[in-house]
């Protein structure tokens, strides 16, 4: 009986909503209850936008099966677009900020389409290189434009990115990408990863789904960029170089290509680890890189492989395990 309730869709939605609310309350409790200091609280904001970056890259990398290396480029387009918008207008925060994020996302999404159309004709490593090239071009262009502040950076961005906003955006990103993947559109995307020729033979348009997925992935990177801009309040083009793209890719691969929960966990851990290692300042990047190599050698498919966590079935199996345990104990007693 328990099983049927937990597998019931409505009940699962309720359960997931409850879990998200509880997590939110926990974070608010930790950050405003004086348990964590200001510095530690801000980590949640960094974790949030890194999760959005990792999950959105996982969409085009782990699910679509392409290897783009220019995610930081999309992030920077979103960051600058949303920052320039919020600096130009003066509206109440609850209108201005979402609008700014949306504009950041759309600007990045359009960039994604412009880059995706030619780039997605290439495969594998060639796609990696061409997106890397586009990412660098975006950076150099921003560096040389007047209205972006060039090398001096863009200053005076209002600080809108609160923990609540970031949390909301992170939840929406995960929700949208998750539900999208569990539909005919998601199956089309995954079929392209599995076998392009068979996907085409099953009636799926490669160009359409590759481009759209790329654009969605870029859109969320743009939103993350917007959150980043309104958190740091200053944008410097050198923060969006090739290394930032690599950093996001590392989060995705370490968590497991094609595992959303993997991206969430690994983005969180990889945001926190360098901070934890701060007391070993000199050694921290060496340790970080060694960890990366070791994890890859011993767990090449990433920490979570393709596993995806789902609360309903997880509780379900936990219940069954507990029940099994009790039954076994009861059985032993009876003997």
């Amino acid at each position: 009986m328990k099983q049927s309730i937990l597998r019931n869709n409505k009940f699962r939605y309720l359960l997931n909503t409850l879990a998200v609310v509880l997590l939110y309350l926990l974070i608010i409790f930790l950050t405003s209850g004086g348990i964590l200091n200001r510095y530690q609280s801000n980590m949640f904001i960094q974790i949030g936008y890194n999760i959005i970056l990792a999950v959105s890259l996982n969409l085009s990398c782990g699910f679509l099966g392409q290897l783009p290396l220019g995610h930081a480029g999309f992030m920077s387009v979103g960051a600058y677009a949303s920052a320039l918008f919020s600096m130009a207008v003066d509206l109440p925060v609850y209108i201005e900020f979402p609008a700014a994020l949306l504009i950041g996302g759309i600007a990045a999404g359009i960039t994604g389409i412009i880059i995706g159309l030619p780039a997605l004709r290439l495969r594998g490593d060639y796609l990696a290189i061409i997106t890397l090239g586009f990412g660098e071009i975006i950076r150099v262009v921003i560096l040389n434009l007047k209205f972006t502040g060039g090398a001096f950076g863009l200053r005076g961005i209002e600080k809108h990115s609160s923990i609540s906003w970031v949390f909301l955006c992170t939840v929406i990103t995960i929700f949208v990408i998750h539900t999208l993947l569990k539909s005919r559109h998601g199956r089309a995307v995954i079929s392209i990863r599995e076998d392009e020729i068979a996907a085409e033979a099953s009636g799926i348009s490669l160009t359409y789904y590759k481009t759209v997925t790329f654009a969605i992935s870029a859109f969320f990177a743009g939103v993350a960029g917007g959150l980043y801009a309104h958190y740091l309040c200053i944008l410097d083009p050198s923060n969006f170089g090739f290394m930032k793209s690599v950093e996001i890719l590392v989060m995705v691969v370490l968590g497991g290509l094609g595992s959303i929960i993997g991206s969430v966990v690994s983005a969180s851990v990889l945001t926190v680890i360098p901070e934890l290692l701060r007391s070993f300042a000199d050694y921290r990047m060496v340790i970080y890189s060694l960890l990366l190599i070791i994890v890859m050698i011993f767990k090449p498919s990433g920490l979570f492989g393709r596993y995806d966590f789902s609360l309903g079935p997880a509780i379900d199996s936990a219940f069954r395990r507990i029940r099994g345990l009790i039954l076994r104990k009861g059985g032993a007693k009876n003997k």
């Binding site: 690599v246 290509l257 890189s289 498919s301």
Partner: peptide
């Protein structure tokens, strides 16, 4: 293994040498 794991390892080695 998948070539992307190899790529990430190469990136790791690159980080390591640099640092």
């Amino acid at each position: 293994y998948a070539r992307i794991s190899l790529l990430i390892t190469a990136i790791g080695v690159s980080f390591f040498l640099q640092n």
